[in-house]
Amino acid sequence: KWEEIAERLREEFNINPEEAREAVEKAGGNEEEARRIVKK
């Protein structure tokens, strides 16, 4: 599940997989929260 979210974030925000994974981890697997983290 987290991998899927990280993949979507990576494609959408054009970030590297590591950044995407970190955002999802910080968000506890919550996609909306992960998006907010990435946008900062």
Rank of each mutant, 00 (worst) to 15 (best):
I15N: 05
V24N: 00
A27Y: 00
E31K: 05
I15T: 10
K40W: 00
A23E: 01
F13K: 06
K1A: 14
E4G: 07
K26E: 14
E32R: 10
I15Q: 05
R8Q: 05
A34H: 00
E25D: 10
E11Y: 08
R35I: 09
E33G: 06
A20K: 01
A20V: 04
L9A: 00
R10I: 15
A34M: 01
E3G: 11
K40I: 13
E11T: 09
E33N: 07
W2V: 07
F13A: 10
I37V: 08
N30F: 06
K1R: 09
N30Y: 06
N14H: 11
V38D: 01
N16W: 06
K26V: 10
I15K: 04
E7T: 15
P17V: 15
N16H: 10
V38R: 02
A23L: 07
I5S: 03
R21D: 06
I5H: 01
A6D: 02
A23G: 03
R10H: 07
N30A: 09
K26M: 13
I15S: 05
L9N: 01
K1P: 12
P17T: 09
E22L: 14
E12T: 03
E3P: 08
R35N: 04
G28K: 12
E19C: 13
A27M: 03
R10W: 12
E19G: 04
E25L: 10
L9E: 00
A23W: 03
E22S: 13
N16Y: 07
R35G: 03
F13Y: 09
N30Q: 09
I37G: 04
E19H: 08
A34T: 02
E25Q: 10
E22V: 13
I5V: 12
P17S: 13
N16R: 06
V38K: 02
E22Y: 05
I5G: 01
A27W: 00
E22I: 14
I5Q: 04
R8D: 04
A23C: 04
R10N: 08
A27G: 05
N30E: 06
P17Q: 14
N30D: 13
A6F: 08
R21C: 03
E18W: 09
N30I: 11
R35Y: 00
A20C: 04
E3L: 12
K40L: 12
K1I: 11
E19K: 07
E19N: 06
